[in-house]
């Protein structure tokens, strides 16, 4: 019994190590591409910074921007979350944007793989919605409900 257990445990550990290594490689390299075809990002070579940098550091950029925006009123800059969504959102057959946190979409697919919960979309819109107040805040609105009022 006991001697049978040891190889099992060793095997499990080995398997775990392999998984961790593979995950490292995928995270570090450019294993899988999660950018959705049809999104504006798909046509670009790089994000606002080189892809490898963005994979590791996008949350730092967003967080830094978030504090600058909320506390200092700095908006419409390179690292705004609205800009991320605007560029990375993909479209359904009818041309409607698909939420970036929906299954298999840009944010959720990679986060599901990395097993990291995304908190952003508890509060933030996951598709461009409403009219942006300036060009820099994000591209053209998709379903602009307020245009008539402006």
């Amino acid at each position: 019994m006991v001697s049978g257990l040891i190889p099992t445990r060793a095997g499990l550990i080995l398997l775990g190590l392999c998984c961790a290594l593979v995950a490292q490689c995928v995270l570090a390299g450019d294993g899988q591409c999660y950018v959705r075809p049809g999104s504006r990002a798909a046509a670009l070579d790089d994000c606002v910074a080189p892809t490898a940098f963005m994979r590791r550091n996008h949350m730092e950029l967003i967080k830094h921007q978030r504090d600058a925006t909320v506390h200092q009123g700095i908006r419409g800059t390179r690292d705004s979350l609205a800009g991320c969504i605007d560029c990375h959102v993909s479209r359904a057959a009818d041309g409607q944007p698909v939420a970036v946190n929906e299954k298999h979409q840009f944010c959720s697919a990679c986060h599901a793989f990395a097993a990291v919960k995304v908190d952003c979309f508890d509060c933030h819109a996951a598709v461009p919605r409403g009219a942006p107040l300036s060009e820099a805040a994000g591209g053209m609105p998709e379903n602009d409900l307020r245009r008539t009022n402006q």
């Binding site: 609205a82 969504i85 508890d122 509060c123 933030h124 819109a125 461009p128 919605r129 409403g130 009219a131 942006p132 107040l133 805040a137 994000g138």
Partner: peptide, 10 residues
């Protein structure tokens, strides 16, 4: 269905 410009959540 928040607006992009006004994030709000539970």
């Amino acid at each position: 269905d928040q607006l992009t410009g006004v994030p709000r959540g539970k």
